[in-house]
């Protein structure tokens, strides 16, 4: 049999239980939208268009609600008027924490008010795009973001990063000589001290030659061109590795989709009559499971569409 039938006792038609057996209606939607998107590989068609529009609509609705909840409801309404909010603290002479600092509730109200005002000014871009109002909050955002990025990135991706890359190999306690390494029951080549030094040299040569490739202000002498060529090879190897990882990721997604659909070929998801207890569900039951039924429908409709088009052309 092409796909193995699995033993899931029964599946509900509709369930909101996150931990229970996936429901049949969910399985139908899962298989339909997956196969509808895959049908684009053949050519653009109404199934794909439907899936695309549903995806955009659902995505927009979900993200709008999430951002409304976490970006407006919680930080404005709940923050000010909710239980233990700023207004309540003002009445009880409590203290509000902002960024780890305790401040007076009035100050918290002022700070949140300024933030709200900047947000409103930003929205003004919709009504008066060239006015000064949306530019001011934009400038604040760019400034804050630049400062935040500069400090964090400099520390982690320049100071610590470069420092660690050029660390003395002696400080690495995992390094072993060849005889020590091979004496272990299981070993890795990375722990061999000679390999470690070799990899550092490769890194150093690769870095310098790749940077040299981007020097355009000097005449390309033989030496510079030679180093640049090594740089190009280093870059190509890097891009090749990145491409390999990208392929790995894309194929993993395809496999996951197919594997998930396989789980819906169980007899519990069949839309046909349920088999008697202990009886083999049979091929008909398998053919009526969502993945196979929907595949057949999509292929049949696309084939019919091609047939009608060909007939139309022949008649013309």
């Amino acid at each position: 049999m092409f796909l193995a039938l699995q033993d899931v006792a029964s599946a509900p038609w509709f369930s909101l239980d996150l931990t229970g057996t996936p429901d049949i209606s969910g399985a139908i939607l899962y298989c339909f939208f997956t196969l509808a998107v895959f049908s684009f590989l053949y050519k653009d068609n109404p199934f794909y268009k439907l899936a695309e529009h549903v995806f955009v609509g659902l995505g927009t609705a979900y993200f709008t609600l999430q951002y409304y909840d976490e970006g407006i409801l919680q930080p404005v309404y709940e923050y000010l008027f909710g239980e233990g909010g700023v207004i309540e603290k003002m009445e009880t002479s409590g203290i509000v924490e902002i960024g780890g600092y305790s401040v007076d509730p009035v100050m918290a109200l002022v700070f949140r008010g300024i933030a709200g005002l900047l947000a409103v000014m930003l929205v003004m871009r919709l009504f008066a795009p060239n006015s000064w109002m949306p530019r001011l909050p934009l400038a604040v955002m760019v400034g804050v973001y630049a400062a935040l990025k500069m400090t964090g990135e400099t520390q982690s991706k320049l100071v610590l990063f470069v420092g660690n890359m050029f660390k003395d190999p002696i400080t690495n306690s995992n390094l072993l000589s060849w005889s020590e390494l091979t004496a272990q029951p299981s070993w890795r080549i990375e722990n061999w001290e000679a390999f470690f030094v070799f990899s550092k040299i490769v890194f150093f040569v690769g870095l310098l030659s790749a940077l040299t490739h981007f020097i355009f202000t000097y005449r390309r002498t033989k030496v510079l061109a030679g180093i640049s060529k090594v740089g190009v090879i280093t870059l190509m190897i890097t891009f090749g590795a990145m491409f390999g990882f990208t392929v790995l990721g894309r194929i993993a997604l395809l496999i996951e989709r197919v594997d998930e659909m396989k789980s819906y070929t169980a007899s519990a998801y069949s839309l046909g009559p349920a088999p008697a207890a202990g009886q083999d569900p049979g091929v008909l039951s398998l053919m009526l499971t969502p993945p196979i039924l929907i595949s057949v429908i999509i292929i049949a409709v696309l084939a019919l569409g091609i047939g009608i088009k060909k007939d139309g052309r022949a008649n013309a």
Partner: peptide
């Protein structure tokens, strides 16, 4: 994810 993995080798094991 596979796409992001090549970026991480340089940060291991220090950061």
């Amino acid at each position: 994810t596979a796409v992001q993995t090549p970026d991480l080798f340089a940060f291991y094991p220090s950061q």
